Simulated scan of single mutants.
Amino acid sequence: MSTAGGAPMTTDTTTATPGTVHEEARIVTRTGPGKFVADTRAVFHREILLTLRDPFTLVFSLLQPLVFLGLFAPLLTGTFGGTGMSTADTLQWFVPGVIVMISLFGTSMTGSNLLYELMTGSYERVLATPLSRSAILVGRALKEFAPLVVQGLLIAVLCLPFGFTFNPLYALAGLVLLGVFGVGIGALSYALGLAAKNREWLFWGVQQALLFPLLILSGMMLPLEAGPGWMQVAAKFNPLTYIVDAERALFAGDIGDPVVLWGVLAAAITCAVGLVVGIRATRRLT
Score class of each variant (00 low, 15 high):
residue 233 V to P: 05
residue 18 P to N: 07
residue 238 N to Q: 11
residue 118 L to K: 07
residue 247 E to A: 14
residue 84 G to K: 12
residue 224 L to M: 08
residue 263 G to F: 05
residue 224 L to A: 04
residue 259 V to W: 08
residue 186 G to M: 00
residue 6 G to T: 07
residue 260 V to G: 03
residue 264 V to T: 05
residue 32 G to I: 09
residue 249 A to F: 03
residue 54 D to G: 02
residue 47 E to P: 00
residue 265 L to E: 10
residue 272 A to V: 10
residue 82 G to V: 02
residue 2 S to H: 15
residue 12 D to M: 07
residue 164 F to M: 11
residue 234 A to D: 04
residue 198 N to S: 14
residue 162 F to Q: 13
residue 188 L to T: 00
residue 100 V to F: 04
residue 129 T to V: 01
residue 267 A to I: 05
residue 37 V to P: 04
residue 257 D to H: 15
residue 249 A to C: 07
residue 12 D to L: 09
residue 213 P to V: 01
residue 97 G to A: 07
residue 74 P to D: 12
residue 77 T to L: 12
residue 159 C to K: 01
residue 32 G to R: 08
residue 42 A to W: 01
residue 271 C to V: 01
residue 194 L to R: 02
residue 85 M to F: 15
residue 268 A to Y: 02
residue 179 G to H: 02
residue 183 V to L: 10
residue 31 T to A: 10
residue 276 V to Y: 11
residue 38 A to M: 08
residue 115 L to S: 04
residue 230 W to R: 13
residue 196 A to M: 05
residue 259 V to R: 09
residue 138 V to D: 01
residue 263 G to H: 09
residue 163 G to W: 08
residue 282 T to A: 02
residue 48 I to Y: 11
residue 144 E to H: 14
residue 204 W to S: 13
residue 275 L to R: 05
residue 32 G to V: 08
residue 190 Y to H: 15
residue 11 T to H: 15
residue 97 G to D: 07
residue 213 P to W: 07
residue 185 I to T: 03
residue 175 L to V: 06
residue 149 V to W: 02
residue 133 R to E: 03
residue 242 Y to L: 06
residue 197 K to Q: 13
residue 217 L to G: 03
residue 212 F to V: 02
residue 87 T to L: 15
residue 184 G to R: 01
residue 22 H to R: 13
residue 75 L to S: 10
residue 275 L to K: 05
residue 141 A to G: 03
residue 258 P to K: 04
residue 117 E to P: 06
residue 163 G to M: 09
residue 146 A to Q: 06
residue 280 R to P: 00
residue 245 D to E: 15
residue 26 R to M: 13
residue 52 L to E: 08
residue 181 F to I: 09
residue 3 T to K: 14
residue 76 L to F: 07
residue 92 Q to M: 10
residue 269 I to Y: 07
residue 43 V to C: 07
residue 246 A to F: 04
residue 284 R to A: 03
residue 3 T to I: 07
residue 4 A to T: 13
residue 239 P to Y: 09
residue 36 F to I: 12
residue 228 P to Y: 06
residue 197 K to T: 11
residue 202 L to P: 00
residue 77 T to I: 11
residue 162 F to D: 13
residue 100 V to I: 08
residue 236 K to S: 09
residue 126 V to E: 04
residue 176 V to R: 02
residue 95 V to F: 14
residue 223 P to R: 00
residue 181 F to W: 15
residue 16 A to S: 14
residue 201 W to N: 14
residue 274 G to P: 02
residue 86 S to L: 10
